[in-house]
Amino acid sequence: MNPANYLYVAALLFTIGAIGVVVRRNAIVVFMCIELMLNAANLAFVTFARINGNLDGQVMAFFTMVVAACEVVVGLAIIVTIYRSRRSASVDDASLLKR
């Protein structure tokens, strides 16, 4: 089997994640979609590592995971903080930027 097929899957997952960020309003779902995009990128990294025959891609994916973990921790903390003051996890409610 051609490993490039994994790349197609990664591309589709990434696209779905990107659209999810745009269309969903629940901040937690938006976050999960971001994670989906990161995972899609990781899949591509791993696939490229296999195609090129060295492990640098895997190391990169490893770092991505660490950064994603950090992001999740801080992001979820922000969501909790917003929720505590607004009683809402909808990203549309935090729309004060236009004024």
Binding site: P3, Y6, V9, N42, L43, V46, T47, A49, R50, Q58, A61, F62, M65
Partner: peptide
């Protein structure tokens, strides 16, 4: 599973 299938055993487990 995909990671493990592609020779990234460590990453698969970490995932």
């Amino acid at each position: 599973i995909f990671y493990i299938a592609q020779g990234a055993l460590f990453l698969g487990i970490v995932q």
